[in-house]
Deep mutational scan, measured.
Amino acid sequence: KAKLLVLLYAFVATDADTICIGYHANNSTDTVDTILEKNVAVTHSVNLLEDSHNGKLCKLKGIAPLQLGKCNITGWLLGNPECDSLLPARSWSYIVETPNSENGACYPGDLIDYEELREQLSSVSSLERFEIFPKESSWPNHTFNGVTVSCSHRGKSSFYRNLLWLTKKGDSYPKLTNSYVNNKGKEVLVLWGVHHPSSSDEQQSLYSNGNAYVSVASSNYNRRFTPEIAARPKVRDQHGRMNYYWTLLEPGDTIIFEATGNLIAPWYAFALSRGFESGIITSNASMHECNTKCQTPQGAINSNLPFQNIHPVTIGECPKYVRSTKLRMVTGLRNIPSIQYRGLFGAIAGFIEGGWTGMIDGWYGYHHQNEQGSGYAADQKSTQNAINGITNKVNSVIEKMNTQFTAVGKEFNNLEKRMENLNKKVDDGFLDIWTYNAELLVLLENERTLDFHDLNVKNLYEKVKSQLKNNAKEIGNGCFEFYHKCDNECMESVRNGTYDYPKYSEESKLNR
């Protein structure tokens, strides 16, 4: 008799109507990190870190770059004969040098303040090359056809396309004075040089004057150069050297050249137009028929994500570079809930034993079982409120962090190594801060989002509990077992918050 009662009780308990509160689960393989956990499985997430590029040089917003090819900045601007293909260059979106560009200054020497000139050019998007001192009329008392084997072109001695090597005419090199007034309405880049012979005999042979000088002056520039005559090792078949100089001439300003020898005179100059998204990159990537809004030396990035880990040097509207390998923000729920887990921000989770793959029309909802059958029903209101809140948060985070910009490298010469090392340390410090901030932001927001979901499920549970009161009992896994019969209409009233407690209280009292 006792065995019969136990079996009867078990049958009745199993047959009781139930309603459970749960949440969506799926077959997603997404994982995120939080402050407290690593690799948390979630139903949905968004990636904030771009880690792919196309490996190509592309047009930037429809404008092609200027590819210097086998030449570098120095060779292009001075007019190395091997860089003749660059003479027609007028406009570009950015400038590309190759790491091993070999054609710079063909006659050995240095372009002074080269690093600063590169910085200036990094904001130039177009130029006009014009004859600042016409070759045939500007130097009537001097020979202007100086050439050298060091600047050979097609097997013949030649010289820079933008400079003139002035030497004596006959047996004399009379003092020369020439000036140019900038009437271009924009900055003009003027380049010139000073020749330093290897011996007094060479000085006399070329310029006749043993104590020659070169003077260059404008409103913002004033220097006097004296040739340094000295024996030097042979470089590119030359014992002599040429140093090259430049200045930016403001609109309306005048530049005056005065010399008694050794002047490498300007022939062509450049009127410059600035462009905020221009820059110089060093890259071996090849040019393709493609378009982008962000270019790196590795390749083009076409992404609206706020961060990238491809390269710190970028041109155009680019994500911020960070050292992170993963920045994924959760938008959905835990896919593998932890039992009795309390989140960092106070939300209680884990009283549900598992997510439901059968509930596909919402994030949170119900599963019921009664004599009429069983089924899932999503709670659309709480789901939609959660979707709206999380979507707004993700968009806000992306908008705040998605300050796209150009980031170019800084140039230092060989004598500025300590400054370069200090600059690298400062840049590394800023990069570490950006990386830390980005990672911390994602970790915190992921923790908040998961706790937010847990709290929403808990609130749904409490909503049902407050309606049923003692007409049902909690069975410990997020479910309630009714003390009365609850048909589909009754189940719907529980879900929509209109459950009639008094209607079922007498039946429940008897069954309790």
Rank of each mutant, 00 (worst) to 15 (best):
L4S: 07
L7V: 08
L7D: 02
L7E: 03
F11N: 01
D15C: 08
A16H: 11
A16S: 13
D17F: 03
D17E: 13
I19W: 01
I19V: 09
G22E: 04
Y23G: 00
N27W: 12
T29M: 09
D30M: 00
D30C: 04
T34E: 04
I35G: 07
A41I: 01
T43K: 13
S45Y: 01
V46M: 12
E50G: 01
H53Y: 15
N54F: 15
N54K: 11
G55A: 09
K56T: 01
L60V: 15
I63Q: 14
I63P: 00
G75W: 09
G79E: 05
N80D: 06
E82C: 06
C83T: 03
L86C: 08
A89M: 13
A89K: 13
T98E: 14
T98C: 02
P99R: 12
N100R: 12
N100L: 14
N100P: 03
E102D: 02
N103G: 04
P108S: 06
P108D: 01
D110E: 14
I112P: 00
D113Y: 08
E115F: 08
L117M: 12
E119H: 06
L121P: 01
S122D: 02
V124M: 12
L127H: 10
E128H: 13
R129V: 06
F133R: 02
F133K: 10
S137W: 10
W139V: 07
N145A: 14
V149W: 14
C151G: 09
C151Q: 09
S152V: 11
R161E: 09
N162G: 02
L164R: 05
W165F: 08
G170A: 12
S172W: 13
P174W: 11
K175T: 14
T177K: 09
S179E: 14
L189T: 04
V190C: 11
L191F: 12
V194H: 00
P197R: 06
S198P: 12
S199K: 14
Q204L: 10
S205K: 04
L206F: 06
Y207C: 06
S208D: 12
N211A: 14
A212G: 10
A212E: 00
A212F: 04
V214Y: 05
S215D: 10
S215Q: 15
V216K: 03
S218D: 12
S219A: 09
N222G: 10
R224W: 08
F225H: 14
P227C: 07
I229W: 00
A230M: 08
R232F: 09
R232D: 11
D237I: 05
Q238T: 10
G240W: 01
M242P: 01
M242V: 03
N243A: 13
Y245E: 07
L249Y: 00
P251C: 00
F257R: 00
E258M: 08
A259I: 06
T260N: 14
G261K: 04
L263G: 01
I264R: 00
A265P: 05
W267P: 00
S278Q: 10
G279L: 08
G279F: 03
G279C: 05
I281G: 00
I281D: 09
T282G: 02
T282A: 12
